[in-house]
Each structure stands twice: as structure tokens, then as C-alpha cells.
Amino acid sequence: MQKVIRKYKRGQGYGKSTKKVLDELTLNEMFEKFMTFKKTEALAPRTISEYYIHFDYLKDFLGDDMTSENITLEDFRGYIGYMLHDKELKPMTVNIRIRKMRAFIRFCFTEGYIDTPIHKNFKPVKAPEDTLESFTPADVKKLLNVIDDELYTGFSDKVIIFVLLDTLVRISELVAFKRSNVDLKGGFIQLELTSLPPFPALVGFVPRA
């Protein structure tokens, strides 16, 4: 029986290199692969949404979709300068956007979609230190003393302050409270965490008279 020898042109069939496939990926395609991966981490819907929002900011700066071959560190450094000087965003805001996109390009490098570890030099910018001082016990007493808890609004304000002090819950989480999150008999509040996988966290509290 005559042996059949099959010949393949370069870039076709089994001869098609993995590098060629990766080179054909666009920035949008790589981001969708990144988000598919992030969704396996059981992140909260809000966190997933933030990745899309910050990617849109980056795309607005870049203008057109890019391929994995022509993405450079200069693009991301230019993005930082654009946010700081053209948009005049605060360093804290810039750093939030940088961290989200840095996670994306780190993923691209780890997966082999890009050849250069851009994320190593695409770092958060220096931001002013937070010098905001917290309330002292005396400050808290003064605040509570000026609230008229005979009024519904005053009583509501005191409850909010007590919950914040007793549980150290974030204001955004407190605002998102539902009746189902509070167990008066058990003496605890169940939070829906937004920055960690969505399992319930129990925060103890002591109901006040």
C-alpha cells in the first residue's frame, strides 16, 4: 500500500502555529476571555460591571480596537497621562482604573496573548496620603447629643450611627440593607459583600434601647 504524504502550507492545518492564533486576537477579544475567567471567580455582579466600565474608559482613549501585536507600554502610559492631565482626574480615581486594567493585561501576558509584561511598568500613580482623622469618643457624643430622637428622622439618624459604630459596616453596604438582611432575634446583620465572592458575612450587633 502506497504511503500517503500530506503537505501543509505554513499557517494552515496542523502547521498553524499557536503564536499566529494569538496574534489575531483583538483587545476586545482578549478582554472577553479575561472576563470569562473573572466570572469563574464568583465575583459580585457589581465588581464584574466595574471591569466593563473601566475597559470602556480605556477604549475611549485608544479610539480603535487593537491587536495583540501592536499593544505597547506607551499606550498605557499615555492613558495615565490622559487621565491625569486631560481629564484632570484625581490620583485615587486614576489608580482605581489602573488596577482594573493592570489585572487585565497581566492576564493577557500570563495567557500568552501578549509577549511583553506591560503590567510590570503600568503601575498606580503616587496619591496624597489620607490625612482624614476619625471621630473621637467625645466627637461621637457631641454628634449624638444634637440629634432629636423624638422625631422619626432623628431616631433614624441615631440608628444609622449606632449601626455604623457597632458593626464598622461600610456606608454603601448600609444603604443597600434590606429587611431580610437584619435578624433582630439572632442579633446579627447579614451583609452582601461587593468586593469578595458573594457569600454572606455575619456582623454581630447589640440592639440598643
Score class of each variant (00 low, 15 high):
V4A: 06
I5N: 11
R6V: 15
R6F: 08
Y8C: 12
K9V: 14
G11A: 01
G11V: 07
G11Q: 02
G11N: 13
G13E: 06
K16A: 02
K16I: 10
T18I: 14
K20H: 10
V21I: 10
D23P: 13
L27G: 00
E29I: 02
F34Q: 07
M35G: 04
K38E: 06
K39S: 06
A42T: 03
A42I: 09
A44L: 03
P45W: 09
E50T: 08
Y51G: 03
H54Q: 14
F55V: 04
F55Y: 14
L58Y: 06
L58V: 04
K59P: 00
D60E: 11
D60A: 14
G63Q: 06
D65R: 03
S68K: 06
E74G: 08
Y79F: 11
G81V: 10
Y82T: 06
K87Y: 00
K87I: 03
M92E: 09
N95G: 02
I96F: 02
K100I: 01
F104Y: 01
I105K: 01
R106P: 09
F107M: 01
G112T: 02
Y113H: 08
P117S: 03
P117H: 06
P124H: 13
P128Q: 02
D130H: 09
D130S: 09
E133L: 01
E133N: 00
T136D: 04
V140I: 00
K142Q: 10
L143R: 05
N145H: 00
E150G: 05
L151W: 11
T153V: 13
G154L: 09
I161G: 10
D166Q: 14
I171S: 12
L174A: 13
K178G: 15
S180Q: 15
V182G: 08
D183H: 14
G186N: 14
G186I: 04
I189Y: 11
I189S: 11
L191D: 08
L193M: 15
P197K: 13
P198S: 07
V203H: 15
V203P: 10
R208L: 05
A209D: 13
